[in-house]
């Protein structure tokens, strides 16, 4: 059986490598992918959305509906891990899993983390706020924010971190982010435009439609970041403690 699998893998691998020959050149402007929609985006994005970062403009504006459900997927993944792993006190008596014990605390590690975390969080906020002008955006910024809490939990302990970022607030923020994203879309509907057509905000905020696109994207990115931050830390807290949120790695 193992030999058959190896043979099949080799044949498939060889076939894939052989078919790479037919792929267009890297960066070829005449390849099918760069002749259909891409030229429109590249030529018109700044006039249509006033956002210089094409990636963010496509992600948060042209394909805003997709990105909303990507956020919902992250939200659902977090909830699933929580549902499967989270153990309450009552259930805890029945199951007791051995956990890796940590011995003592490391002063160098703790002080390094203390130095690192504030710049990390500031950088995350910068990444979120500048998502539509430079690389980055809600997902990346949210992950970095979540990682700063994970670093705190790794260098100190999970209980201390959970005092600062409670489980109830994790759940609250993970829902809040999705709500902000969908809420911005619903307001567009209420103002008489399509769902997530940010131009609808222009009269409401007293700005031009182009600026409304840019601000709408920023709002949506903030929503994504809040959800991703809360879910990343919640995933870590549940996976590292085995579900009882008592002690981490």
């Amino acid at each position: 059986m193992k030999r058959l699998t190896l043979l099949l893998t080799l044949i498939l691998g060889a076939y894939l490598i052989w078919s790479v020959e037919d792929l267009p050149e890297w960066g070829d402007p005449t390849s099918p992918a760069s002749t259909y929609l891409s030229p429109h985006y590249i030529e018109n994005i700044v006039e249509e959305t006033s956002v210089p970062n094409l990636v963010t403009a496509i992600l948060a504006d042209y394909r805003g509906y997709d990105t909303m459900f990507e956020t919902v997927v992250v939200f659902c993944a977090g909830l699933t891990v929580l549902t499967i792993l989270r153990r309450t006190e009552r259930k805890n008596k029945k199951v007791s899993t051995p956990r890796p014990q940590r011995e003592g605390s490391d002063i160098i590690l703790q002080n390094t983390a203390r130095l690192l975390i504030p710049p990390m969080q500031l950088f995350a906020l910068y990444v979120i706020a500048h998502g539509h002008h430079s690389p980055g955006g809600g997902f990346q910024g949210g992950v970095i924010l979540g990682a700063s809490f994970i670093l705190l939990a790794l260098s100190y302990d999970l209980k201390k971190t959970l005092k600062r970022f409670k489980e109830s607030s994790m759940l609250f923020y993970s829902g809040l982010g999705v709500l902000i994203y969908a809420g911005i879309g619903v307001v567009c509907l209420l103002l008489g435009k399509n769902f997530l057509a940010y131009a609808a905000w222009s009269n409401f905020l007293g700005i031009t439609e182009l600026e409304a696109h840019s601000h709408g994207m920023l709002g949506v990115e903030i929503g994504v970041a809040i959800t991703v931050m809360a879910i990343m830390f919640s995933l870590y807290a549940d996976l590292a403690s085995g579900g009882d949120l008592d002690e981490g790695l």
């Binding site: 997902f139 990346q140 992950v143 995933l235 996976l239």
Partner: peptide
Amino acid sequence: AVDVAFTEAAVGAGVSTILLLATALH
């Protein structure tokens, strides 16, 4: 592809390694 690289660095190399480690230890 700087945006993709940024995501890969934050999610792939950063958080998912930690999550895999946390799971592997249990």
